[in-house]
Write a protein that binds this DNA or RNA. Structure first.
Length: 420
DNA sequence: TCTGGGGTCCTAGGACCC
DNA sequence: TCTGGGGTCCTAGGACCC
């Protein structure tokens, strides 16, 4: 059966999640902040209308937002992750196939019905998610993923649903779409295209293949081909195995001493190792990076180093050891460090690939890790840890998250109460 | 004073091998 | 003075995404 793509996008997702559980937020402008309460990463309609851009630093807009009576929340990823799963379950019931594209977006395939029937189906999906989970969504439908994305953009002015037209009507739509708003065309490709006189999606569609291939790599060629209506990107309903994992945080203040950075890096390494074991993976490579702030006056300093792990492992002591060595290699005395992190790469499932002739993880190692994980799972994160990561409570580099909402759906103590 | 975090894919170039 | 050619693997860096 012929199928079309639909992109479903949750409107102002984090804001919408907060509003589901706190009705007093529904009629006021609202934003949700990134970690460290640094950037604005979700905005209600009123805040968007006021011209506050996505990703803007909060401190630059705090006064404006306050004057509007804006409610402000720190991000609560436990809540958003759980709400995302609920929404995806609803969408699954309405789709032929579904790909979870991000926490707040999914690609669906739908039977290739006439446009009117597709619009009705889009409306049904919107109502279902709204009624059962309280989250408003938009639905954009087209013959390729990229055109479904275009349709999703257009849906903003059309009750949150839009079916991509064909022929001249499509060309007319694409002529009004700035090329930088096309999925896959970022700032660098945008300005490169502009230098060659291409400023709209329609212009991109008409670029010669060879030129695209040369200047925008196969990525750009695929985008253009998809805009022409020929699918290049499949629906990925089986999630691809993860290839890398990053754990990092900005510090709420600045750090100078190697000892402080060592605690931060060790904490990230420890968390990454736990996550690795939870997903039954081992890492074949470990990287450590440090950086000073990105903005303001130079000098800035950032550095990174990596090393292979032989054999690939998920054992905390090994990762702490290697991370410590790499940190000494990237650390310089002097810079005001703002961020540090750990990256695990070359991930593969436990028990696959080559072992190591002289250094196998022993049963005792694995038993120890299993015991640590169980204690932390059952008694709360941080119950047992490694000394290298420092002692919770006396760390002075942990992040700021001063306005977080309760864990409504994932912690018993935070469950909302209903009163008659 | 205050600017997030976590991913993927593609390409070029070096190391290494025969 | 003369100094091959082709293949694979790995890594770093750039670009993009939400």
């Amino acid at each position: 059966m012929d199928a079309v793509f639909a992109l479903v996008d949750c409107e102002n997702f984090y804001v919408s999640c907060e509003r589901v559980f706190d009705p007093s937020l529904r009629d006021v402008p609202m934003v949700v902040l990134s970690n460290n309460d640094g950037c604005i990463i979700a905005r209600s309609a009123a805040v968007k209308d006021a011209g506050v851009p996505m990703g803007a630093p909060y401190f630059q807009w705090a006064e404006t937002l306050d004057a509007m009576g804006t409610a402000v929340r720190s991000s609560n990823y436990a809540l958003y992750g759980d709400m995302s799963r609920r929404v995806m379950t609803e969408l699954e019931a309405e789709a032929l196939r579904l790909e979870r594209y991000s926490i707040d977006e999914a690609f669906l395939t739908l039977p290739a019905l006439a446009p009117d029937a597709l619009r009705r189906q889009a409306r049904r999906i919107q109502r279902r998610v709204r009624r059962r989970q309280g989250v408003p969504i938009r639905v954009g439908i087209g013959p390729t993923k990229t055109l479904a994305k275009v349709a999703d953009e257009r849906a903003k002015g059309h009750d949150g649903r839009y079916v991509c037209p064909t022929g001249d009507a499509l060309a007319a739509v694409l002529r009004t779409l700035p090329v930088g708003e096309v999925w896959g065309i970022g700032p660098a490709y945008s300005s490169l295209l502009a230098e060659h006189g291409v400023t709209t999606a329609e212009g991109l569609r008409q670029c010669p293949d060879a030129w695209l291939r040369k200047h925008l790599t196969v990525v750009g060629l695929r985008v253009a081909t998809e805009l022409r209506g020929t699918p290049c990107l499949e629906l990925e309903d089986a999630p691809a195995p993860r290839k890398s994992m990053i754990r990092s945080r900005s510090f709420s203040g600045r750090l100078y001493a190697l000892g402080d950075l060592r605690e931060a890096v060790a904490t990230h390494a420890q968390r990454a190792a736990e996550k690795l074991r939870a997903e039954e993976l081992v890492a074949g490579r470990l990287g450590v990076f440090v950086t000073t702030k990105k903005f303001g006056d130079p000098p800035h300093y950032s550095n990174a180093a990596g090393a292979p792990l032989r054999p690939a492992t998920n054992q905390t002591p090994t990762l702490l050891d290697v991370a410590g060595t790499l940190l000494r290699a990237v650390y310089r005395d002097g810079p005001a460090y703002k961020k540090a992190g750990v990256r695990l790469q070359a991930l593969r499932p436990e028990g696959t690939g080559q072992g190591h002739l002289f250094r196998e993880d022993t049963d005792e190692d694995e038993a120890l890790m299993a015991a640590v994980d169980r204690l932390n799972r059952e008694m709360g994160r941080g119950t047992v840890g490694f000394a290298a990561a420092g002692v919770a409570g006396r760390r002075d580099w942990t992040m700021k998250r001063e306005m977080r909402s309760p864990h409504y759906t994932t912690r018993w103590a935070d469950l909302p109460e209903a009163r008659a």
